[in-house]
Simulated assay, not measured.
Amino acid sequence: KIQAIHDAGITGEGVTIAVLDGALNPDVPTLRGADIEGRHLDGCPDPGLGAEVFEASSHGTSVTSLVVGNGTSEIGAGPVGIAPGARILYYGVLQDACDVNSVAAALDDAVDQGADIVTVSGGYGRLTDEFSQETVDSVSAALRDGVLVVAGLPNRGTATDFELMTMNGVVNVASVDAQAEPAKDYGGSDMRNEDVDVVAPGVDVAGLGWDGSWGMSTWSGNSAATPIVAGLLALAKEKWPDATASQLLQSLIRNTGSEPHELQWSSRLGHGVVNATRLLEEDPAQYPDENPLFKDGQAPTLDEVYSTPEPSESEAPGAQANAGPGGLPWTLAGGGAVVVVVAVILIVVIRRRRGDVADAES
């Protein structure tokens, strides 16, 4: 019922979403009229590759279209964005040539630029004990500033994790099909993940570039489900502007499925299938102002994010009086998006680090 929500005037207007992905074709008909600002960071090439580089830019262009697409494409109909009124800050930090700490740099810049939501459909594959402290610090700063961080989970089990998927406070997203059944792994079994928070449509959804044109084609994977969740949070933020980020997360995980229910969780569906109508109907102010997505043994801790820092010596009471004359009182997730279009399979490498690949298949 997204169209009915848009018709009622809720489009994500006034909300800023930072998209962290690979390359982008900003000139496709689907993105005409969208408010998109490309952010160029040191250590990363310009993400705008142009019209003919389908293999590199289909992923990022499809992700962005699921947030702010206008419903058209080169051949007529195209992806309709969940939050077409939102402002997009685009970071091409999952390109091969980007510096290893580009995700942290993008998070920091997004916070500085006023982002309300960050969505990442992929990332670096690393062992948990190799995660960058810089990224932990950047996630902590974003959460502390009230920024919602949404990240796609890998489409298959690996020995490594995406850099954000085991970070506390982050919304980890997996995908379901049109019957609300979990996406399947390569063996045909339901995908399961101990870190999944919510699931969203991610099988045979509208995309661009997967068939070698900028007409609408279909693709699948957690990469597709992730921007849908980010878009829904943008709609909720517009509808309930006084709600805190933590209250919006509480509402997201409590108002899943088609009927009211007690808070629940499983490795198949997380807290359930996101529901746009229920998310917008329920006032988030009824829920605790506490981020519900923290686990013991994961970083950052609640204290690292939300505790008031100890005052420095210069800020301590009486410090100014004692200072003297000169004294002066901070891969693509679905990484691998599993994409099936006309039974043709193409592996799209969005990011490779330490031999781990975030791949998309079309």
Rank of each mutant, 00 (worst) to 15 (best):
E181Q: 12
G209I: 03
L94V: 12
A56H: 06
E13G: 10
T331H: 13
A4D: 03
G152V: 00
D359T: 10
E13F: 05
C44A: 10
N70E: 02
T61W: 00
A243K: 01
A86E: 00
I2D: 15
L20E: 02
V357G: 07
V340A: 09
R278T: 13
D35R: 08
L263C: 15
K239I: 03
T30C: 02
A333C: 12
D289L: 12
P47R: 07
G297R: 07
G257M: 03
G78R: 03
E315P: 09
L49W: 05
V103K: 05
D161I: 06
Y124G: 10
Q286S: 13
N275R: 07
V28A: 02
G157L: 04
A299W: 08
Q95S: 14
D356Y: 14
A343S: 04
A104M: 11
S102R: 07
D7R: 08
S121F: 02
T166H: 05
G231A: 11
T30H: 00
Q179N: 14
V176M: 09
A51C: 11
G38L: 15
D197I: 12
P311D: 13
A51E: 15
A206F: 00
Q133A: 03
A115L: 05
A18S: 01
A86F: 00
E238Q: 15
H59E: 01
A4M: 06
L153Y: 05
T218W: 09
L41P: 10
A343M: 09
I88C: 03
E134L: 14
P317H: 08
T135N: 07
L232D: 01
D108M: 03
G326H: 14
S220E: 05
H40Q: 11
T158D: 05
L232K: 00
V229R: 06
P29S: 13
L263F: 15
H261N: 13
E315M: 15
T119V: 13
A51K: 09
A358E: 11
V100C: 06
N168I: 01
G324Q: 13
W210H: 03
V15T: 11
R192E: 13
D116F: 07
D112P: 03
G270A: 05
V357H: 10
E310P: 13
G212D: 08
S220V: 07
P300M: 02
V103A: 08
N275G: 14
A224N: 10
G43E: 12
H261M: 12
F294D: 04
A360Q: 06
H40F: 09
A319G: 12
S132H: 04
V63C: 07
A178R: 06
V344L: 09
L127I: 10
S251W: 06
P317W: 06
N70R: 00
D129E: 10
S138D: 11
D190S: 09
C98I: 08
S58T: 03
Q3W: 10
D359E: 09
G33F: 01
I228M: 10
W330S: 12
V93G: 11
G69T: 08
S121D: 01
V342L: 04
G188V: 05
Q113A: 11
P309R: 07
P311T: 13
I5R: 01
N193V: 00
E74S: 12
E282Q: 10
S251K: 10
S217I: 05
P79E: 01
R351H: 12
I2K: 12
A319M: 14
P154F: 01
Y306P: 01
